Amino acid sequence: MTPSTATAVASAITTTGLSKSFGDKVVLAGIDLRIPEGSIFALLGPNGAGKTTTVQILSTLISADAGTAYVAGHDLTREPGAVRAAIGVTGQFSAVDGLLTAQENMILMADLNHLNRAEGRRRAAGLLDRFELTEAAAKPVSTLSGGMRRKLDLAMTLMGDPRIIFLDEPTTGLDPRSRRTMWQIIRGLAADGVTIFLTTQYLDEADQLADRIAVLDHGKLVAEGTPEELKRRIPGGHIRLQFADADALESAAALFGSVTRDDEALTLNVPGDGGVPALRSVLDTLDRASIKAEALTVHTPDLDDVFLTLTGRSRSGDDAGSPKESTR
């Protein structure tokens, strides 16, 4: 069924019952997505969950077995050419020619997008400037850093002026500074109205960038929402108090109901969501009893907790997200 005009305008990507199997292995078991225009959407999941298959279907690289999908308002099955004209795809590894210069790579993309010579050079110069690659324009790509190659790769994707960009692991292998630069670029694209479909194993990256997140596991969507909505679904938040001596710890433990304590570390964990009311309540309770805490830290569930709870799988150290505790 064709979506209503209002839905088609509001959604950059819409899927209903999208399914795919390879032989006897079900990779996607009927997923439904609604991704608004100009938003950043992150698809998370363990290896083998179906993320790459989803991107390959939506970017017309492979076909679905069942279900419907509209990308940039075009039916994926009946209008694949129109879909390809509206999208850009940046893979996990930079698809740049190391023997060419940065500018020559850009001009090559202009030719592939059938831009005339003047327009191609104008757009290439503008994108090289936007991505702070002007000084590197005449250098062979093989001499550029990993971060510069990733920026060039994304700049090349933009030569076709796509309305939707699929980014597969865009910051893999980048140093922290290059990674944050890429985040700024992605936010800037969304601010300009470009829809970003992001797959990443870096959970702090999804937390920083995504307007909405979906978690895919065994080919099924097991959760979807804003980062804050997903984190609120996971219990386990607490306020950790540290005391100067055992007497203070013992006195504080008597004030609160359900707590956990570490006598060796002189710490007390009081359940709470980390919000201002919870913090005020704990501090007021201590103040009324004239008990002083030496330190206070807040732990709230993060996307690591969401991921592990929903998928029941651990991730490698390279995929570690942001720290869970903040000192107040």
Rank of each mutant, 00 (worst) to 15 (best):
A248P: 01
I57Q: 06
I87V: 04
P46F: 08
P3L: 08
L18N: 02
G147R: 10
F256Q: 08
V270H: 00
T199R: 03
T285Q: 06
S281Y: 06
I107P: 01
A12W: 01
T327P: 02
H74V: 00
L28N: 03
L268Q: 00
P46T: 13
L167D: 00
A223H: 07
S63D: 11
L76V: 04
A64C: 05
Q56S: 14
D319E: 12
S142M: 12
D207A: 06
D129N: 12
T68Y: 00
A124T: 04
I164V: 15
P277L: 04
L144N: 03
V259K: 07
P323Q: 09
E132Q: 14
L108M: 13
L174E: 12
V222Y: 11
L310Q: 11
A125M: 13
A72Y: 00
T143C: 05
R180S: 12
A223M: 14
A85Q: 12
T14A: 11
I13M: 07
R280W: 01
S19H: 12
G219Q: 11
H299T: 14
S258T: 13
I40Q: 07
A244D: 11
A289L: 10
I57W: 07
I196R: 01
G81A: 10
L221S: 11
A191S: 15
D32N: 14
R84I: 02
G120C: 14
V55D: 01
R130S: 15
M156C: 15
L266P: 03
M148Q: 15
S322H: 12
S4Q: 07
A191N: 15
S21H: 13
L296S: 04
